[in-house]
Amino acid sequence: MDARESSGSAPAQKATRDMYLPPERRKIADGGAAHISAKEFSVYYGEFEAVKRVSADILSKYVTAIIGPSGCGKSTFLRSINRMNDLIPSCHTTGALLFDGQDVYGKFTDEVLLRKKVGMVFQKPNPFPKSIFDNIAYGPRLHGVNDKKKLMEIVERSLKKAAIWDEVCDRLDKNALGLSGGQQQRLCVARTLAVEPEVLLLDEPTSALDPKATAKIEDLIQELRGSYTIMIVTHNMQQASRVSDSTMFFYEGLLVEHASTAQLFTNPKDPMTEDYITGRFS
């Protein structure tokens, strides 16, 4: 923690972004390099261009919020990063999307390995109809961890990271579908963390939750900030400003503005962004 807070050795670019943050949130030590970068990246559903020639750098270890009106391509962009769009037969892409400098849609990219590094939490909590333990252990087991003790360690660590350990530690063998919506969503975060990803994609993770559960998820994102590159799609502007370091504003498939959160919400460059964040359209 100390190392992270004393951010003296960090690159200059990072320092400028952290400048906007209150001191307790300045904990990004080695962030600031582009973890994911899009270059003229478009996503099509058949003929329809849902994401239009987007160019952007998603910085490592930062929380990046994606905002924009419904249907503007937020989910499409997010899901193209871990290639969940592959499930839709009509979907294809042009341009380049790089993850760690590797082309995500390259000929030799193994999407299974990619998804291991780029975890995702969905809008609706989607635990498996299995026990809490088996839910968390699902990923590690897939990737070859079978030792019971080691699995238990991973499960405990992941649940603690997702701030749900105290609530479920005495019923790990119970079915996960018995948890409340908010708990299920944190369980899904824990399940993703158990695979030890580098990137966490959250697609409106709180839109199906009540305010109390939402607050818990937001706290959780704060906790995870600085350890993972996080991208969160949200409808809620307050949420974006609360949890993120930088924000992308999408409108009808176009990336209108991408800036540090503080700047985008206090001093937007584009009039369309201003209209949106002041609620003139939504």
Binding site: V112, F122, K124, P129, Y138
Partner: peptide
């Protein structure tokens, strides 16, 4: 539910593994 499939694939599961598990 489609969400099970998504959840499993997003954890880095192969198609076959998703079907089987």
């Amino acid at each position: 539910p489609k969400t099970y499939r998504e959840a499993s694939l997003s954890l880095g599961s192969t198609k076959w593994n998703t079907i089987a598990t």
